[in-house]
Design a protein around this nucleic acid. Structure first.
Lengths: 138, 138
DNA sequence: GGAGAATAGGTGCATATACACGCATCATGA
DNA sequence: TCATGATGCGTGTATATGCACCTATTCTCC
């Protein structure tokens, strides 16, 4: 193949593909729990943070605010989180319900299995370093 | 902070965050062209492949078939690609229009700028290797 | 040539992501 | 206290992603 016909690969597209594959892998591992990795990570973060205003939760997750709000929808519908006005009437305080806590506990072994399988093949530090570099470069 | 309060970071969530940041970076760079990086990559691939059946295009891009189909929608609405039945009446042949070719040409410098900025900070080979490892491990 | 398998797509549904815009509430300073 | 800016959210819109299920067409083998 001549040099001219070579196409420079897009770094972003490559990373997006890797992320799709990794997400599918985690979602498959988590399937018995009924949670996706995105949902599990929100619940887990809530468990760690305790009741948290929506915007703060989004900032912690490095997610756009409205993205977080909509990601919470299915969790609220399923009764895993509750969303209530705070003392500041503008705020929405998000917190885990008992069912949400149970869901995290039930899903954690599946998540750990996915983590173990992936981290056996690749070093998390490499991913973290790459993520940091990308976020800094972006 | 005690060891117990430490939370093991989720490899998948870290990668998803990096991908969001990187995608936003490319999309911002491409904004003058009116294309997103996902759209640009489809057009570029089409330019390389020539007229291609939908499923084949999806396989090349490592995208789910229906995802590719729907990602083509806005491109077709804008007249950048055309989708026609093939000799095999089941197939849909996707091809670039002249406007699509022009759009790729116009967007390429912006994409190259994004590539240069990112690849100056991180090695594409590292991303590619990570992607391969993740896809293999997944 | 016809029955059944295989292939190519389409549609419905659900989640994930993010921008633009607007509303309600709170804080601040004159 | 009241105008004004800041803050927190919700909604509309659009794209991105993928599963389950269905239809239409083609192929294969008898």
């Amino acid at each position: 193949m001549s040099a001219e016909s070579q196409i420079e690969p897009c770094t972003c597209v490559a990373l997006r593909r890797a992320t799709r594959a990794l997400t599918a892998s985690y979602d498959a591992a988590l399937r018995p729990s009924g949670l996706r990795v995105t949902q599990f990570s929100i619940l887990r973060r809530l468990e760690r943070l305790g009741p948290t205003p929506l915007t703060r939760l989004a900032i912690e997750a490095v997610l756009e605010r409205t993205t977080m709000a909509r990601n919470l929808d299915p969790l609220e519908r399923r009764g895993l989180v509750k969303i209530e006005p705070g003392r500041d009437a503008r705020e929405r305080i998000v917190s885990l319900t008992d069912a949400g806590r149970e869901a995290v506990a039930a899903a954690t072994p599946f998540w750990q299995a996915a983590q173990a399988r992936i981290n056996a093949q690749i070093d998390f530090k490499a991913v973290a370093a790459l993520a940091d570099a990308l976020i800094a470069a972006a």
